[in-house]
Structure formats: structure tokens, C-alpha cells
């Protein structure tokens, strides 16, 4: 299996790609929005409110980012965009035929795409979290940064993305137009919003909601463990389905 080489070439293919811009613009946007939120509301409302609820400023900031800004709901759409960027390299001028004519297994090709989607998705999550730390520092939070809190926040999102990346990878293999999987993720985000408020029991089985659940620090009463087990189970099953579909697929 030439997995290492394939991952290396996936990175090479992203040279001069807008994906890098996307990777910085999105966290830059969330950082800017959160900074604005803190400048306007921290002293008069958010900080006293956090004290009242017995949570730290950092926990409050994560809640603002994840719930109010809806980072957790949008994250699957962002991952779908990343997946589209990665897959469009092959689908744009029918590069699949060239790649799969080389001595590589389809499994290693699919796995390399999956891992690279995950890496870029994880970087997005990481940059968002780093942006939040910067916002807290600039705002002058009185508490010191809780690395345990941020570590958990980031790690849980990482694991929840196992499911999303596998789904998007599969959709990009099935669908020739890379935009359709993004549309699916967008619909998934809307459905997640409905399930979150109205059908929480069903929401536990809806993978597009997992990134949200992963960062739910009690606001909607989800147990983040759902995102962990769901991410792992869906990730493994959907990847295997993707592998089966990809192995059967004729490259015409």
C-alpha cells in the first residue's frame, strides 16, 4: 500500500489551491465575530452571566462560538467544502483514470483522501480553537486558559469529524459533481438544527449533528460521548461502505 506517498501527493495537489485560503478565512471569520461579541457584550452581560451560571469565561466563550455562532452546526458544511476541494482535483479533468491506472489499490487511494479531508478538517477546528484563545486573551479574561477544556473541545470535534469526513468522501465518490455533496451537508445542517430543538432522541443518530454535540457543554443537554461513539461507529461503517462502492465503481 502506498498510503504515505498518496497522502504526500494529496498535499502536493493542494499547492496554489483555494483550500488554504478557506482554511484561514473561516477561523479568521469566527475569531473576528467572537472578538466583536466580546467587545460588545462581555463586560456588561456575558461575564456576569457566566459567573451567575458558575462557568468560566473560557467555557462561556466556547458556548458562544459553538451555539450562538453555530460553529458546531456549520462545521459539517465546512468539511464538505474541504472534501469537494480534494475530490474536484480528480473529477475536474477525469484524473481518476490516471490515478487508478497507477499501481495503487483503490483502498489506499480512498483512505488517503479520507485522511487528508480529516487533516484539513482538524486544522480548521484547531485554528478555530486557537482563535478563541486569542479572543480570550485580547478581551482580558480573568481566568487562565483551561487547556483541559480546550483539549476536550478540540478532541471531541476531531472524533465527530470521523463520521462527517467518511460521509463526504463517500458522496464525492458517488457523485460526479462535487457541489452536490456540499448541498447534502447543507441540508444536513438544516435538519440538525431542527433535530437539536425538536427531536433530540433522533438527533443522537444523526451524524451531521455530532460536531455540534461534541462541543455541547450542557446547553442543550447532549452528552458529548454520543459524538465520540457516533463518530467512531459511523466513520468506520461509512468508510467501509465507501470502500465497497469505490472498488465496484467503473471509471468511465
Amino acid at each position: 500500500m502506498k498510503l504515505v506517498q498518496l497522502i504526500g501527493t494529496e498535499l502536493s495537489k493542494q499547492k496554489r489551491s483555494f483550500l488554504w485560503l478557506f482554511l484561514f478565512i473561516i477561523p479568521l471569520g469566527t475569531t473576528g465575530a467572537m472578538l466583536l461579541d466580546m467587545v460588545i457584550r462581555y463586560d456588561d452581560y456575558l461575564f456576569p452571566n457566566a459567573q451567575e451560571n458558575g462557568i468560566s469565561s473560557w467555557e462561556m466563550l466556547i458556548n458562544e462560538n459553538h451555539g450562538v455562532l453555530s460553529w458546531g452546526l456549520f462545521l459539517p458544511v465546512f468539511v464538505a467544502v474541504i472534501s469537494a476541494f480534494i475530490h474536484q482535483n480528480e473529477s475536474k479533468v477525469d484524473n481518476w483514470k490516471n490515478l487508478l491506472s497507477l499501481p495503487v489499490t483503490r483502498g489506499s487511494v480512498l483512505l488517503s483522501k479520507y485522511l487528508i479531508i480529516l487533516v484539513f478538517g482538524w486544522l480548521l477546528v484547531l485554528f478555530n480553537a486557537l482563535g478563541l484563545i486569542l479572543v480570550g486573551k485580547l478581551t482580558g479574561f480573568p481566568e487562565s486558559v483551561s487547556f483541559e477544556l480546550f483539549g476536550r473541545y478540540v478532541l471531541f470535534q476531531f472524533i465527530s469529524l470521523l463520521a462527517i469526513a467518511a460521509i463526504q468522501n463517500l458522496l464525492n465518490v458517488i457523485m460526479k459533481n462535487p457541489i452536490f455533496p456540499v448541498v447534502v451537508a447543507f441540508v444536513g445542517m438544516i435538519v440538525s438544527g431542527i433535530l437539536m430543538y425538536q427531536h433530540q432522541q433522533i438527533g443522537k443518530f444523526f451524524p451531521f449533528l455530532y460536531p455540534y454535540i461534541a462541543g455541547d457543554l450542557g446547553k442543550f443537554g447532549f452528552n458529548p460521548d454520543i459524538a465520540i461513539s457516533g463518530g467512531l461507529i459511523y466513520g468506520a461503517i461509512v468508510f467501509m461502505v465507501g470502500l465497497f462502492v469505490f472498488n465496484k465503481k467503473d471509471i468511465v
Binding site: G8, S12, K13, S101, L102
Partner: peptide, 27 residues
């Protein structure tokens, strides 16, 4: 070695970079 129908390439990369991708896979 093969070229099926139209040539495959990554348009945003140079000719060297394109060939280098295949070279890396072929070690």
C-alpha cells in the same frame, strides 16, 4: 504506462509538479 482518451492533469500545477506527483507514487 498509459494515457486514456484525453490527457489527465492538474491544471493549477506546473508540468514538472504534475509529473512529480506520478513519480512519487511510482517511487
Amino acid at each position: 504506462g498509459s494515457m486514456v482518451e484525453s490527457p489527465s492533469y492538474y491544471g493549477h500545477l506546473s508540468a514538472y509538479e504534475n509529473l512529480n506527483i506520478t513519480r512519487k507514487i511510482l517511487e
